[in-house]
Design a protein around this nucleic acid. Structure first.
Lengths: 217, 217
DNA sequence: ACAGCAATAAGACGAATGCCGTATTTTGAA
DNA sequence: TTCAAAATACGGCATTCGTCTTATTGCTGT
């Protein structure tokens, strides 16, 4: 049984190069199709998801490889994804792994190494180029680095919003907050909506955490 | 220039088997010596530290491979250590990497793979058997498992409950937590129910706050 | 006077949560 | 080996939350 391979790569030259490399192993691999970006990949998978492995570029328009990996592993968990890219920085490696990638190869990898990696990932392995493996070990040695820090921009919350946020942090629900502040629960909800928008979060937990981090409360 | 290799292995049969495997590549490798345990290894290194790579067993009397790895990387940071063992559980993998191992191969690996791994580690890579690579990626996906081990005594939460609580504190919802921990969302809800009961709270916010106050997370 | 913002209020709808069950499998310790 | 705890899994139901839309009132600075 040949392994069915798809690629996601925006650059035509590189995509053809990859396809050529895959073509060197006609007995093991079957090239299914190539997507030009993450969104295109999801569209193609929606039509034909009979793919075993996807070779995924990272930098792509429309939807990048990391987000695409997240989506694919969520929608088609049986499909193994191998990142195939020129980037070797720890951040991209880590985010790819977090997104669900099972392998990470550099684009200058020799054709037989890529084929070997595809076979390896199908057998439950995790093919990585040597430099990538070394960096992922470094990440494992420093788990603190994994806690992501954000660009410290200031958030302007109004006085009332800050009050609401404080109550929120105490674990009060909307009705309890409305009682505490003598306003309608609808108003509380509206304040919280605005807080979410300003802090760029979508639930109480993260709102309070972010507020604490930025010393708003 | 041949790569100078030493081994640390208590079992005579296995040690000879490893040495034989290394002997298949006389052009690349030079076998220096074999230690019978971690303490013996340190003694031998103290006399002759002109070693490039050490193939390290884990379970050994006197001093096990993980502690030996710690010592060697501390005293001789230029020496690359490859774990060569039958154990493939995540805990041993993680502790080996923490201790400073740069590679992790299983003992049933073919001779040429071992030789390849030795060369790879000398070039700054991180040779890993496929199953090991896959598990180290799993570890990277769940960093909080790596951090906590001890918790407060006021409330007794199980290890799993603490993991769930950690995810909860990041603002993940039930489904996201279930994805992160590879369990059903129903199970997540049950864990959270138990957490609430033990902490005597009734929602995420207060659970996390109480957990932080009591240094559980 | 008017634009802009903050604060207030309300309704609707789907998703998520909290709480009540039950039940099986795994694990660890005695 | 046996027993208890832990971890796993599933369903129902009422409530809460997150998001959308619309609208009124009051304050402030130009």
């Amino acid at each position: 049984m040949k392994i069915k391979v798809a690629t996601a790569e925006d650059n035509n030259l590189l995509a053809n190069s990859i396809r050529e490399k895959l073509g060197l192993f006609p007995d093991d691999l079957e090239f299914k199709y190539r997507a030009v970006n993450g969104a295109d990949l999801l569209k193609k998978l929606n039509i034909d998801s009979s793919v075993d492995t996807i070779l995924m570029d990272i930098e792509m328009p429309e939807m990048d490889g990391i987000e695409a990996t997240q989506q694919v592993t969520r929608l088609y968990p049986q499909i193994k994804i191998i990142m195939l890219t020129v980037f070797d920085d720890e951040d991209k490696i880590f985010r790819s792994i977090q997104a669900g990638a099972m392998g990470y190869l550099l684009k200058d990898e020799r054709p037989d190494k890529i084929c070997e990696g595809i076979k390896e990932v199908m057998e439950g392995g995790a093919p990585m180029s040597p430099a990538i493996a070394a960096k992922s070990l470094r990440l494992l040695r420093n788990p603190d680095k994994l806690i992501q820090e954000e660009s410290s921009e200031e958030f302007y919350l109004t006085k009332r919003e800050t009050e609401v946020l404080n109550k929120l942090s105490l674990g009060l629900d909307y009705l309890e907050i409305s009682d505490a502040l003598f306003i309608s629960p609808f108003t509380v909800r509206k304040h919280i909506e605005n807080i979410y928008r300003k802090l760029q979060v979508h639930n109480k937990m993260t709102a309070v955490k972010k507020a604490i981090q930025h010393k708003i409360i």
